[in-house]
């Protein structure tokens, strides 16, 4: 039996194909854009071509209701816990920094014991970093290449206000590399405060779209006082978790 897990987030639609031996055979993603439904269909179709007919589908994320024929629709919190356990067995704590929210999850054997999530606004989420980098014309990958500058102090965590703060730093002649590191630091502070509420156990797995950013993991470790590690395939943790749930359903 094959399973397809879809994680339909606000920025990206991620998909995972798991076979009956629990091998993650294919991990793909598409930008969500404005037409969520189209992105979802594309991911689903691509994976269906690979799995052939008969695969069970589970969908998670904000767009999970849009996935036609999904057998189950678990929350992304449960899926990230399951997916993180799959990617790094024995994981007790997860920090998932997503497009419109950030979640700190405490888990045991892939089951959620406790979680914390930001309220309403996009302060300290992936969107906040994305917007800031856009303003600085930098890519996410560029951050890990920055050397020899110290982070500027960025106080605002709001995706909207940060922009004016970034402008004023630029006017003061602060380098964009330094500002970028400052933004990462501000993001890490916010995520660390969520993390502290779940009493994290080291090592904490970083999942979601920023999972590969070494600088973020390092800064987050420093801010939270527990070791945070990059999960190589962490951006697909939610989709993998959904597929795992589909297989055990």
């Amino acid at each position: 039996m094959n399973a397809i897990g879809l994680d339909c987030g606000s920025s990206w639609c991620k998909g995972a194909w798991l076979d009956k031996n629990l091998n993650a055979r294919e991990l793909i993603s598409r930008p969500a854009g404005w037409n969520l439904k189209k992105a979802i269909e594309e991911v689903l179709e691509t994976l269906r071509e690979l799995t052939g007919p008969g695969a069970i589908v589970a969908a998670t994320g904000y767009g999970r209701g849009l996935v036609a024929g999904a057998k189950l629709r678990p929350t992304e919190i449960g899926c990230h816990a399951k997916g993180a356990e799959f990617l790094a067995s024995g994981t007790r704590s997860v920090i998932d920094i997503g497009g419109q929210d950030t979640k700190a999850i405490g888990a045991l054997n892939g089951k959620v014991l406790t979680f914390q999530m930001n309220d309403r606004c996009a302060a300290g989420t992936g969107r906040f970093l994305e917007k800031s980098l856009e303003r600085l014309s930098l890519n996410l990958e560029d951050i890990d290449l920055i050397t020899g500058v110290s982070p500027a102090s960025v106080a605002s965590l709001c995706a909207v206000f940060a922009e004016s703060e970034i402008m004023s730093l630029l006017f003061q002649g602060v380098s964009r590399e330094s500002i970028a590191l400052g933004v990462v630091e501000a993001l890490a502070e916010k995520a660390a405060s969520l993390l502290s509420k779940i009493k994290p156990l080291s090592p904490v797995a970083l999942t979601g779209g920023l999972c590969q950013c070494r600088t973020l993991a390092k800064t987050l470790s420093k801010a939270s006082g527990v070791q945070v590690i990059n999960l190589e395939r962490g951006r697909h943790a939610g989709a993998i978790g959904a597929a795992l749930l589909a297989l055990s359903a």
């Binding site: 678990p74 929350t75 992304e76 919190i77 449960g78 959620v112 014991l113 406790t114 979680f115 999530m117």
Partner: peptide
């Protein structure tokens, strides 16, 4: 009503625990 989706996710995850 802008956070209804967020509330749904949080509530569902809480019930799962």
């Amino acid at each position: 009503s802008s956070d209804s989706e967020l509330l749904k996710t949080r509530a569902a995850a809480f019930i799962e625990t």
